[in-house]
């Protein structure tokens, strides 16, 4: 093997950055969508209506039992079928990630809501708040502070998971790297470079998560 050649990386930098931008966009959308969906599912799951709580639990456990790649394949196949017309890989992947992450975020949310002491729920009820008002005004503000580090940690895992869109050939960072590696026949440089980029971004995310652990106090 010849020496380490960095020109493959520098020559294709704009293309790689575009891929990275897509990975980050996927992460951001899946995180935002997953958080909203996750909150909704967590609220349903803590509902006193057995049927609703059961359905929410089924959703969460179903998504948690299967691999993300299978979920991506499922939605890649289902979304065009449901809409009755072909849509790009991007839309089905976005739906897949939001639905999948929703299941994981709902577990974090549920733990957060449950960590709010039962006395507070009772006090809120006694002062005339409805269930949803209690969630919105009492439980959630406290739970979110407590859960913020875990949400960021889950975001780091999610960012790594976006590499899996490789299987439907969406040009995220991972896919761009493989394309450049194949075109330039420089797999060693490209994959080591990609590993360093992922490592750097994830370590930064983890640092943010652990710094959030210290800013907990309610202003």
């Amino acid at each position: 093997m010849s020496s380490f050649d960095l020109s493959a990386i520098s020559n294709s930098l704009p293309f790689l950055l575009e891929g990275l931008a897509l990975s980050l966009m996927l992460t951001a959308v899946a995180m935002a969508g997953g958080l909203i969906l996750g909150l909704l599912i967590a609220i349903l799951r803590l509902s006193r209506l057995r049927l609703i709580a059961g359905l929410a639990a089924l959703y969460v456990n179903g998504f948690r039992a299967v691999p993300l790649i299978l979920v991506i394949f499922w939605f890649y196949f289902l979304v065009p079928l449901a809409l009755g017309r072909p849509v790009g890989a991007l839309y089905s992947v976005l739906v897949a990630f939001v639905m999948f992450e929703g299941a994981y975020y709902s577990e974090i949310m549920r733990a957060g809501l449950q960590s709010v002491r039962s006395g507070q729920w009772q006090a809120a009820k006694a002062s005339g708040l409805s269930y949803l008002q209690t969630v919105r005004l009492v439980a959630l503000p406290q739970a979110l502070r407590k859960m913020a580090p875990l949400m960021v940690t889950q975001g780091v895992i999610l960012f790594q998971d976006t590499a899996l869109v490789y299987v439907v050939s969406l040009n995220d960072f991972m896919t761009s790297v493989t394309i450049v590696a194949n075109n330039t026949n420089r797999p060693v440089e490209m994959y080591v470079f990609a590993a360093l980029v992922y490592l750097l971004i994830c370590l930064t995310g983890n640092a943010v998560a652990s710094s959030l652990k210290h800013v907990r106090a309610i202003a």
């Binding site: 998971d161 590499a163 994959y191 590993a195 994830c202």
Partner: peptide, 9 residues
């Protein structure tokens, strides 16, 4: 902190 897919590669 490196995606498993990339580790396989």
């Amino acid at each position: 902190n490196v995606p498993l897919l990339l580790q396989m590669f």
